[in-house]
């Protein structure tokens, strides 16, 4: 059974088909880089897989279950365009809050562990609104990894990250892949993404133009997929 199976998804905004019969799979331990131009449907697809939005047609299965099922949500971690942490709360309070929402046995212990892993232990009681952009991004990474998800959905994860946050994220993603977790990431930063990716899917105007393993030549020349399968 695939970790994530996207089966013939259609999504319309009004009459406009943002996704057209999208079919993809990602196995456990795979890292799927979702690439495509702006407006190709990458974020829409990730939001449907994450259960934030519903498709009009087709189905999503994560380990055989629907995205909105409670058990499925427990197994999925998401980093979107926003950092999804509260400015009015401290770093520790934010992680404890999400630890409680995810039903962790010891939310405080897990929160402290992840603050240490992301290099934020010294500012754990500082309010997020006082954090630099890089610190906020690292906290967002800690929030997404806090509940040890089996599937990670990352929407433009490297955008606007500072060098340290990119290094932290890449280390965590490599560790996650080594543990057999599944990663689906949409990205424009091909070089960083293809370093990690085992598979690539190219979306062109809401359709899958290419889906296959990431070859060494793709990793060496990130523009190759666009040149071969895109619209030039």
């Amino acid at each position: 059974m695939s970790a994530v199976a996207v089966e013939g998804i259609w999504k319309f905004y009004g009459d406009y088909p943002a996704l057209r019969d999208v079919r993809l799979t990602a196995d456990s331990g795979a890292c799927l880089a979702l690439i495509g131009r702006n407006g190709a449907g990458k974020t829409t697809l990730l939001r449907i897989v994450g259960g934030f939005s519903r498709a009009q047609r087709g189905a999503i299965k994560i380990f055989g279950t629907e995205p909105r099922e409670t058990e499925t949500r427990r197994r999925v971690g998401f980093i979107g365009h926003g950092i999804s942490v509260y400015d009015e709360l401290s770093a520790l309070e934010n992680l404890i809050l999400f630890g409680k929402l995810y039903g962790l046995k010891n939310p405080r212990k897990s929160a402290l562990e992840w603050l240490e892993r992301t290099g934020l232990e010294r500012v754990r009681n500082g309010l997020v609104r006082e954090f630099s952009r890089g610190m906020r991004q690292r906290l967002a990474v800690a929030r997404a990894f806090l509940h040890e998800p089996s599937v990670l959905l990352l929407d433009e994860p490297f955008t606007a990250l500072d060098d340290r946050a990119i290094a932290v994220l890449q280390t965590l993603l490599r560790a996650a892949l080594a543990e057999g977790k599944t990663i689906i990431m949409s990205t424009h930063q091909l070089r960083e993404a293809l370093e990690l990716a085992s598979h690539v899917a190219l979306l062109v105007r809401g359709q899958v133009a290419f889906h296959g393993p990431c070859t060494p030549e793709m990793a060496a020349d990130p523009g190759l997929v666009y040149a071969r399968y895109g619209e030039g």
Binding site: F52, T70, V76, F78, H81, S84, F98, L101
Partner: peptide, 15 residues
């Protein structure tokens, strides 16, 4: 809305 926190709440395994 700031920081897209609603997404994190919707993604969390709570009804």
């Amino acid at each position: 809305l700031p920081n897209d926190c609603l997404d994190a709440l919707i993604a969390a395994p709570i009804s």
